[in-house]
Computed example of a mutant assay.
Amino acid sequence: MPLIDVRQLTKEYVRTRPVEGRFGAVRTLFTRQQVRTTAVDHIDFSIEQGEVVGYLGPNGAGKSTTIKLLTGVLWPTSGTVEVAGPGGPIVPWRDRQRHARQVGVVFGQRTQLWWDLPLVESFRLVGAMYDVPPDRYRQNLARLRDLLDLDPFLQTPVRQLSLGQRMRGDLAAALLYDPPLLYLDEPTVGLDVLAKEAVRGFVEDANRSGRTTILLTTHDLADVERLCKRILLIDHGRVLYDGPVDGLVARYAPYQDVRIRLDGAAEPAGERWTLGGFTGEREADGRWRFRVRRDQPVHHLLVAVSDGWQVRDLAVEESNLESVVRELYRERRGE
């Protein structure tokens, strides 16, 4: 079986609100109204061992709720999750203790470290909680100290660490006991450029052997382009796309934008310009933007424009992951 197998996973939240009466809002035993909100809506996916998967979506899409279901923090309304374990499949919310030994979790806005203790003491406590043999603990800590450059602040209380230092400490704590599965929820949020690079390098190294499978949620698409070969795109609790990063760009943006600025007073009249089978639109800065399909040679457009017009400059812009995801979110919000 896959390392993670998710089938028809659904989570609804139920809240009550007062009913509007003749004299305003009334809340009694008999007048409260239940309101249901579906955060995760019958999603299916599976993740194989050794994958690094980006789990993307706008705020409120259901990402964090999914992570809480996968880690066993929440019970689902319906559906199931099975995680492969040494003694057979694990359902996270039914066997939390056995599942906890299988996973490492890092939340960008929270910490699993002890606030008042030096960082190294937090590591010792994590090792003791997970019964890590002393030799393996020393080997793992030595590797993580070198990889994440922890030595300058190992003896510093956690409360005195910067955000980037604390995040590196949390990453080390999550891998001290060699979990085969690592959940990273916004691990680079609020970090500077150098700290982000350290985190990305750590994730690459953790996955390089193929032993650590990683599910990464982030709003920083540079993380995804650097680390992930596959993405799951979610919105309104439903999976919109599940496949390779390049496949998303090819599917939703099978074109290039060619922007041309003409040199000279005489320009085509109007806001649209059609020539040689290509149609351009005038932009606010005076340039013309032509959207060219990837199977169309760009030089055909350049030849058509150059035949009678002086070109001052041009730029060919490939669609990237960020532009595609932005357009998808905009379209969904429009719907």
Rank of each mutant, 00 (worst) to 15 (best):
L328P: 13
L181T: 03
H236E: 13
G334V: 11
T66G: 14
D285A: 08
E327M: 06
D313S: 15
Y183N: 02
G72C: 12
Q34N: 07
M167L: 13
R101P: 12
I231E: 07
E322Q: 12
V14I: 15
P157F: 00
Y13N: 05
D220V: 12
V239D: 15
P58E: 11
L125H: 02
T279E: 15
P76R: 06
N207A: 12
T38I: 06
D246W: 00
H219N: 12
D313M: 11
A304W: 02
G210F: 14
R333K: 14
R230E: 10
R124Y: 04
A195C: 05
V199F: 00
R145F: 01
D185G: 08
G277Q: 00
G247T: 00
R330E: 15
A304N: 07
G127M: 07
P86G: 15
L154G: 04
Q310M: 07
Y177E: 05
A265Q: 05
T156H: 07
E51R: 15
V316Q: 08
R7K: 14
S209T: 12
I90S: 06
R110E: 09
A266M: 05
A61T: 15
G276Y: 01
P157N: 01
R291Y: 05
S122E: 03
A142S: 14
P268Q: 07
R143D: 12
P118T: 01
R259H: 12
Q109A: 07
L29E: 08
T156L: 09
V189T: 06
L328F: 03
I67V: 15
K196W: 04
V26G: 04
G308D: 00
V52L: 02
V106S: 08
R168T: 05
T111A: 12
L233T: 08
R259L: 11
T188K: 05
V120W: 15
L141M: 10
A250V: 08
A172I: 00
G72R: 04
L125R: 04
Y183H: 06
R211F: 14
G280L: 08
L181S: 08
T37M: 09
S78A: 11
V311N: 05
L240G: 11
M129R: 01
A315Y: 04
L70Q: 04
R287W: 10
E186D: 04
E327L: 09
V35F: 00
Y177F: 05
R261S: 07
G190S: 07
G237V: 03
L163K: 13
E82C: 14
G87W: 12
V106C: 12
M167K: 00
D41Q: 13
V83E: 04
F23S: 01
D170L: 06
I47H: 03
K229C: 13
G50I: 10
M1F: 10
D257C: 09
G50R: 01
